[in-house]
Design a binder for these strands. Structure first.
Lengths: 126, 126
DNA sequence: GACATTACTTACATTTTTTATAGTACCATA
DNA sequence: TATGGTACTATAAAAAATGTAAGTAATGTC
């Protein structure tokens, strides 16, 4: 869609890895600073652009747009535009997007556990 | 350890997100072009630096070092140096690192499924 | 006609990540 | 003295991701 250089080593490496490893392929799709949070919120149901922006206080409109477009291009998110003025656009997870739920949940559990461990380690050392 | 600017908006955003969302915290730890593949290989057992390099033909030594150091700093990987010449260094997953296994597996399954879907979609459209 | 609202877009700047290339230390062996 | 192997480090540059700031379109209401 824009800005990625198909002649770079980086591009070639990413392609090769994604071809070989489905987990890397998956990680590329949901990788990006805000993708996971966006998906997390959308697990609860449809949201409008402005609602997402409010839920993610520090995101810029540009970033939100970019991430949503990427998720849309990956068929994780479905975008519905209502022909109204002012415009209304709703975002919701697709079926395959919704199937990220257990992964996100497990990541969350693992993160919590790791965080606890890290805290404990720090405390031990001081 | 180096190269990250603690005054940037990006840094602040990452921190804030990781604080709130354990899944983002987790994603930050295993995010990075090669981290997941490295972990995948290490799920099968210890590997030496040179062995990893051979398994990841396109990685540069610098990148391999960086990713391993990052994983080590996050307590995902344990590094053991043997006082020999030429040097021998072994890498293996820690307990918490090993607990990534089900996540990686699920990511892999989801990736496979998504890949199939993407293929089918493309074929349908042509 | 000016203004408000929503979901963007555009141009540009900065930061972060990844790649490229050339070293280094160590010592055993030739 | 030179060579080889291993696991790195240093420095620079390219590429990718993210952030900043301003503007746009459409139209109903004041």
């Amino acid at each position: 869609m824009s800005g990625i250089k198909e002649t770079s080593t980086n591009y070639a490496n990413k392609q090769a890895l994604a071809d070989e490893c489905a987990e890397v392929y998956a990680a590329n799709i949901i990788g990006g600073q805000w993708s996971l949070v966006i998906c997390s919120w959308l697990l609860n149901g449809k949201l409008r652009f402005g609602e997402l922006r409010q839920l993610l206080p520090n995101i810029t409109e540009r970033m939100l747009t970019l991430q949503l477009r990427k998720l849309e291009a990956s068929h994780i998110v479905k975008r519905t535009v209502y022909a109204e003025v002012p415009p209304r656009v709703e975002y919701e997870l697709t079926a395959i997007g919704y199937e990220l739920k257990p992964i996100i949940k497990r990541l969350e559990e693992w993160g919590e556990k790791h965080k606890l461990m890290a805290t404990r380690t720090l405390t031990d050392n001081e």
